[in-house]
Design a protein around this nucleic acid. Sequence first.
DNA 1: TTGCGTGCAAAGGTTTTGCATGGCA
DNA 2: TGCCATGCAAAACCTTTGCACGCAA
Lengths: 137, 137
Amino acid sequence: MAKRPENYRTRQGQCILDYIKSLGDGHVTVTQIVRHFEDTQEFISQTTVYRHLEKLAAGGMLRKYVLSGSACYQYAGGKADRREHFHLKCESCGALIHADCDFLDKIERHLLKRHNFQVNLLKTVFYGTCKKCLAGA
Amino acid sequence: MAKRPENYRTRQGQCILDYIKSLGDGHVTVTQIVRHFEDTQEFISQTTVYRHLEKLAAGGMLRKYVLSGSACYQYAGGKADRREHFHLKCESCGALIHADCDFLDKIERHLLKRHNFQVNLLKTVFYGTCKKCLAGA
DNA sequence: TTGCGTGCAAAGGTTTTGCATGGCA
DNA sequence: TGCCATGCAAAACCTTTGCACGCAA
């Protein structure tokens, strides 16, 4: 029933996944990925990057965040680790911060029980002002 | 120092603000606004709509939400009523729901105290699955 | 051989910008 | 009159799609 074979193994697919894995917790945009491979001589068309990211995100291998203007992706470890994980986007400096915290459980439960809404906190991004910008500005 | 005059008063600016006010809590996209004025005979170019919305949002008159693909706007009442106000976006049916709840205060306090992050909950959108889609699918 | 993967080019949608004109104060 | 606002067209982005070719299985 389920389609097992992760499709073909190609140079491009391998490179993209390896690269994102190598970033650990970091995030990347499609443009950054394309640029990265330009820099390393290897070349992968942006179309291919889009198609791989879409597939990987659909399969749970990556997480996709929609920010203003463009989307960014992050390695999710394959394991469906819907672990406590905040995403904080600073509206001032643009930084995308992630922090672990079990407070998320409370939010999740609250939304489900009181609002009948099953929140996907892995995709949700909290907008606001980060520590540095609070101090600096 | 501060620039007091809210600039000029023009037909277009007036129409746009009136229209958004008339929606109450509702949200609109630029496209919807343009379409609305096409329907009512009045015509306002999309460029003008963009420029007004940007200005109004910057001045706090409107709230801007960045969703996937496009942005949407909502009347903020001028008064900086940063009242308890969830925004829930259903990933399944695309509905944008808003609900009031004082649980937001807790989230806000938590993020500030534990993460040094001043969250802007008015702009934050929670992604997930709504009641209907939970039941239906 | 089969069929998915790739890359190019083009299209689609949203938002921004340049420039001449129009309208408010 | 002076200056901002407007509208058109074009550009800039990001993303998707069509199509022919290439490559893994």
